[in-house]
Structures are given as structure tokens and as C-alpha cells.
Design a protein around this nucleic acid. Structure first.
Length: 589
RNA sequence: CGGGGCGUAGCGUAGCCCGGCUAGCGCGCUUGCUUGGGGUGCAAGAGGUCGCGGGUUCAAAUCCCGCCGCCCCGACCA
């Protein structure tokens, strides 16, 4: 491709719409342009890089035995009602109505479609296992699209769905995808790590997310250098709360009975921790009230802990809950937030279920609200004074807590989620009738798994992870072009241009992807643009080198190499090949 | 949806508080000369419903009201 014949609208300054580096570079390098919030056009070079990622994904999915299909983005609303997700996923669904007033949705994911397909077309254990995948546009009415391609309303996803005869067989399918994902990201030049993940509303029993470490990532990951444990903070556990000090202690006669004391104006943990009260946060019980599927639930945590809503949702089995409003709380509890407590004798409503974090188990001499504005209770013995209906790990792990496995201090870091693998179980196969007959003619639901890669997000993650002050540094495998030929004189009869034309033809014939910068621009302009876009190799053809019978090969990172003109072809071909091989990408052909 | 910020030419911005504009600057763009190995210099140009609608006023980019859009923090997620 010749630079003047494509469109590479580079920018010297970052548009104000971009906040994070990768988003700025996507715009500045002329790879994408915004049409609306979370909706982007891929310009020629951005599209080439995207296709590279897609092809790597495709090759590895094929290698893992998955079968490519293409399902409709436009889906009848009925299948979403059938799976039950028309309600549970309602917020993200783009809904539309046709001229006959029939309702449709734009698919945010494809469990329904694929499961119905399998229900119709797969009947026997002999046809299993099967794993279907597609690379396709998804539509999600995101609450807040952001960071360019990172969280978009319309984005490209590779999604795969496995169907097996048993849980054990499903585990094998899961492992194949897990391994394929590791290869895919490695081939894209991405450093990723897998973490245990929350299964969220999609449901299922077991899942891992593939994470790219990045300060701008939207996820927080807890990990242990000692044993390799890593988990999304939504799921992470530590040794804290597992064997609480007072767990084995009987309700104590030594602890005095709860005693009410006045605390005018004190409505926060911090205020009660400050003088004159000086009750350490760790000695307080935090009382939260949630509205779970329209019913009140009390949640208790130690004063210095934070509720982990993902864990709470997981234990509740529903994501339909929210903190109660101050008015609702006053009606049920008889006090306002800040003065709440769950001590049995001061509770107005005994019918509201109480959930408590396991860290509170056995704690004595705690302080909590008295369910009366302006008063707290001291000397509270959790086992003696509070009727807990459900004990659960509900707290958010904090940096430095001992690892549950090896006791080393846990660390946290931020990361971008680029892939997610789930064991789904039979939730969808049962709801949508994807069943098979076994050897004895008995009918069973398929055991499913689902596996997603954010293809467009992966592309941006590569940029977020691989750049410098001059611009993007593309890994050889996903670069829009592998080589940028840069003649410093573009007059058709100039030696530089003539050699450039010859190399362009030869490199292209050798399977190298080349862009020829045939713009009549000053060298500095061309160099800056090539660095900004981030081509792995640049070949400079200028008078100084040509006079010595040489050309200059400039890797995007690293020093320029002068090579004889007749060696240039072989050197470039070798550098491209080596660059690909270093990332585990097989040579062409 | 709640909280915060911002909308002035393709991009980045000044002006807004304290109404008085023929709306300024840099980049980019066009033309000519110049330069020619890291965003060359000079000159001449083109390009603006100051987000949209209403109001106040002799007068609105500037003040007031409403709407729209964009960005950031939170819930959601590949």
C-alpha cells in the first residue's frame, strides 16, 4: 500500500475526547474515529490491525477444535424471554420494533441463539462434544461507555460455546479454551495472566478471566507472589475471616450485657472511632440494609470492612438488589443510617433476614448502633446478642492480608479484562432444551461452557501495554503493516524512490506487509508519523545511505542498522520472520 | 441513573467572572517561494449558525432558563 492512496489521518495533538493513552494513540495514529459515544469507525490501518487479531483468534480456535459459525446480531425477543434473561439482562439490551410492531433485540451475547441451534440440530451423545464460535459485532447499552474501544456500545467479540455430555467432559473443553486463550494473547504480544473470576449474572460455577496488567484497567486483581493465587477482587478471599479468633468461644458470661450510650450526631464509623468515643473501627459492627428483590435484608460487617457486592450477589443468587434509601430504612428499622444495629432485643422487625460476614463470627464486646438515633450499644456479643440467619464471606479483601493458601501478604493491581472463560453448567441447555440421548436412550441436558474474547478491546490493550513517548509499538503479529518503506526523495526518477519501488515489490512478493510512504514530506514528518503509527520496521532510503550503497533499517525500538542494498531484502524478511516467531506466530505458508 | 467537568474552524485553545467582536492564537489545509536525514522558514489565503432553542438587554460567545452532546467518578462487562 502507498501512503498517499490510503487514509492515515495522524494528529499532532490528542483530541479532548480521549483520556487514557491507548485511546489517544488510537485517535492520533489515525486508527479509529468516533461516531457517537462508544461507537467507532475503524480507519484503514485500524482495520488491518483488528483483522490481524481476529485471524490469530480464528487460527487458535480452529486449532483447539472449535467450529466457526456466524449468528445473527438481530434476534427475536422471544428467545430472551425463554431463557429468562429478557428481565435479568434488560438494562444492556438494545431493543427495537419493526413496522409490524414485533420486538427485536440486538444481541449482546449469543447463548440463546447457539443453545437453540444445538437443541434443534444435536440429539445424540455421538455428536458431542461440540464447541461453536464466532467473531462478531455485539451490542450492549452500556451504562457508561468509555476509553474508546475499551468499553463500547458496539464492539467485536469472539464468543464460543461448548456442549458436553458430562461435567468431566466439560472440564476438558474448558481447559482447551483456557490453553487456546493463553496462546492467543501471547501471539498478540500481550502479557496476560489468568485470575479466578466471579461468574456474575451469566451464571455458572467456575470461571477465569484473562487480564492485562494496566493502571487504567477497570478491574482490580488480588494476587499472591508466594503461591501464584490470583483472583478478581470481586471473588478474592484471604485468610482473614476464615478462622476468626473467637470462633470456638461459647456465648460468654464474662461479657457484660449490651449497654446503650448516647452518641449524638455520630453517624459514621470514623466518628465513633474518634475521641471521645474512641471505638476502633475493628471493634464496631457495620449494619447495612439492602433491598433484595423488593425485600429488606440486613448485612453486617466489621466496621473496617467493605461489603463486596459481587460476593453478596453470588451468595444471594440474584443481582437484583440495591442499598435501601434512608426513608425505607427508617420505616423498617426505626432509626436512620448511622444508628442501625441488629441486636435482637433492639430490633423493631424480627422478620428481616440478617446476613453476616464470617469475620464477625464469635466476636465479643463489639459496638453497634442501638436502632435509635443518637445512641449506640457497647458490649455486644455477636453469638449471644444477634440472630444471624446467614453467615457468608461478604467482605472485600484488602492489600497485605495473608493469602488463604500460603499466608504470604496479598497484593493488588489493576488490569484490563480481555478474555473470560466460564463453565456454565446446564442453565441454558435446560431452559432452551439443548438435550441429548445417551447410550441407554436417556435424555440429558448438555453441559455447557462459554468463552469470550473482546477482540476490539484486545487491540486497544496491546496499545495500552506497548507504547512509548513517540507512539504505538506494534508487536510484529498485529501491526497494520510490518514495514514502512521511507524514501526521503519521492521524485519518480530519484534513486531513493526507484529502490523503494523495487524493495516494495520484492518484499510484497516475499509475503511481507509493506506500506510505502510516498508522501512528498520532509523526513522529520515521515519519521514522526511512522513512529506514531508504530510500524515494527522502517526502511529509510536517503541520499547519505544510498551514496554508500546502503539502506538503513530502523526497528521501532532499537538502533538503526545500515545494510548493503542487495542484502536489504533478506534482512527485512528475516527480521519480520523472527519478530513473528518470537511471539509464537508460525511463518507464512 | 446519581455526583463532577466541558461544548468557540478538521485538531488544540484564548475570550466568558466584569455583556460592547469586525471572535484572537497555534497546528492542520490551499497557493507561491524556501528548505530537504527527526514535525524547515517566509509570505499570501480559505475556513466559525461561538452545541441547540428560548429569554433578559439598545447590544449576548459572555447573563438567565430549558434541551442536546461529550468527558471523568460509581453500578454493568469482552
Amino acid at each position: 500500500m502507498r501512503w498517499t492512496q490510503t487514509l492515515v489521518p495522524t494528529l499532532k495533538e490528542s483530541p479532548a475526547e480521549a483520556e487514557i493513552l491507548s485511546h489517544k494513540l488510537l485517535l492520533r495514529a489515525g486508527l479509529i474515529r468516533r461516531l457517537a459515544g462508544g461507537v467507532y469507525t475503524f480507519l484503514p490501518l485500524g482495520l488491518r490491525a483488528l483483522r490481524k487479531v481476529e485471524q490469530i483468534v480464528r487460527e487458535e480456535m480452529d486449532r483447539a477444535g472449535a467450529i466457526e459459525v456466524l449468528m445473527p446480531a438481530l434476534q427475536p425477543v422471544e428467545i430472551w424471554q425463554q431463557s429468562g434473561r429478557y428481565r435479568t439482562a434488560a438494562e444492556v439490551l438494545y431493543k427495537l420494533r419493526d413496522r409490524a410492531h414485533k420486538d427485536w433485540v440486538l444481541g449482546p451475547t449469543h447463548e440463546e441463539v447457539i443453545t437453540l441451534l444445538v437443541a434443534a440440530e444435536v440429539n445424540s451423545y455421538r455428536q458431542l462434544p461440540k464447541n461453536f464460535y464466532q467473531i462478531q459485532v455485539k451490542f450492549r447499552d452500556e451504562i457508561r461507555p468509555r476509553f474508546g474501544l475499551m468499553r463500547a456500545r458496539e464492539f467485536i467479540m469472539k464468543d464460543a460455546y461448548s456442549f458436553d455430555v458430562s461435567d468431566a467432559a466439560a472440564q476438558i473443553s474448558y481447559q482447551k479454551m483456557y490453553d487456546a486463550y493463553a496462546r492467543i494473547f501471547a501471539r498478540c504480544g500481550l502479557k496476560t495472566f489468568a485470575v479466578e473470576a466471579d461468574t456474575g449474572v451469566i451464571g455458572g460455577s467456575f470461571s477465569h478471566e484473562f487480564m492485562v496488567p494496566a493502571e487504567t484497567g477497570e478491574n482490580e486483581v488480588v494476587y499472591c507472589d508466594g503461591c501464584g493465587y490470583a483472583a478478581n477482587i470481586e471473588r478474592a478471599e484471604s485468610a482473614v475471616g476464615r478462622s476468626p479468633a473467637g470462633a470456638a468461644v461459647n456465648p460468654s458470661a464474662e461479657t457484660p450485657q449490651p449497654e446503650k450510650f448516647p452518641t449524638p450526631g455520630v453517624v459514621t464509623i470514623e466518628a465513633l472511632a474518634a475521641p471521645p468515643y474512641s471505638v476502633a473501627a475493628a471493634r464496631q459492627i457495620k449494619t447495612l440494609v439492602y433491598l433484595v428483590e423488593s425485600k429488606p435484608v440486613i448485612v453486617l460487617l466489621r466496621g473496617d470492612d467493605q461489603l463486596n457486592e459481587a460476593k453478596f450477589a453470588s451468595r444471594l443468587g440474584t443481582g437484583t438488589f440495591r442499598p435501601a434509601t434512608a426513608e425505607e430504612i427508617f420505616e423498617w428499622m426505626g432509626a436512620h443510617p448511622g444508628s442501625l444495629g441488629a441486636v435482637t432485643t433492639t430490633r423493631r422487625r424480627a422478620d428481616i433476614p440478617v446476613w453476616a460476614d464470617t469475620r464477625l463470627r464469635g466476636e465479643r464486646d463489639m459496638t453497634t448502633g442501638a436502632n435509635e438515633d443518637g445512641f449506640h450499644l457497647r458490649h455486644v456479643d455477636v453469638a449471644r446478642d444477634i440472630r444471624v440467619d446467614q453467615w457468608a464471606d461478604l467482605r472485600t479483601v484488602q492489600t497485605g492480608e495473608p493469602c488463604a493458601r500460603c499466608s504470604q501478604p496479598l497484593k493488588t493491581r489493576r488490569a484490563i479484562e480481555v478474555g473470560h472463560v466460564f463453565k456454565l453448567g446446564t442453565k441454558y441447555s435446560e431452559a432452551l432444551g439443548a438435550e441429548f440421548l445417551d447410550e441407554s436412550g436417556a435424555r440429558h441436558p448438555c453441559v455447557m461452557g462459554c468463552y469470550g474474547i473482546g477482540v476490539t478491546r484486545t487491540l486497544q490493550a496491546v496499545i495500552e501495554q506497548s507504547n512509548d513517548k513517540d507512539g504505538i509499538i506494534w508487536p510484529m503479529s498485529v501491526a497494520p503493516y510490518q514495514v514502512c518503506l521511507t524514501p526521503l526523495n519521492v521524485a519518480p526518477q530519484s534513486a531513493a524512490m526507484q529502490l523503494a519501488e523495487r524493495l516494495y515489490a520484492e518484499l510484497t512478493a516475499a509475503g511481507v506487509e509493506v506500506i510505502l510512504d510516498d508522501r512528498d514530506e520532509r523526513p522529520g514528518v515521515k519519521f514522526k508519523d511512522a513512529d506514531l503509527v508504530g510500524f515494527p520496521l522502517r526502511v529509510n532510503l536517503g541520499e547519505k545511505s544510498l551514496a554508500r550503497g546502503e539502506v538503513e533499517i530502523k526497528p521501532r525500538t532499537g538502533a538503526a542498522m545500515s545494510v548493503k542494498q542487495d542484502e536489504a531484502l533478506a534482512r527485512v524478511v528475516a527480521l519480520v520472520r523472527d519478530g513473528l516467531a518470537a511471539l509464537g506466530n508460525a511463518p507464512r505458508g
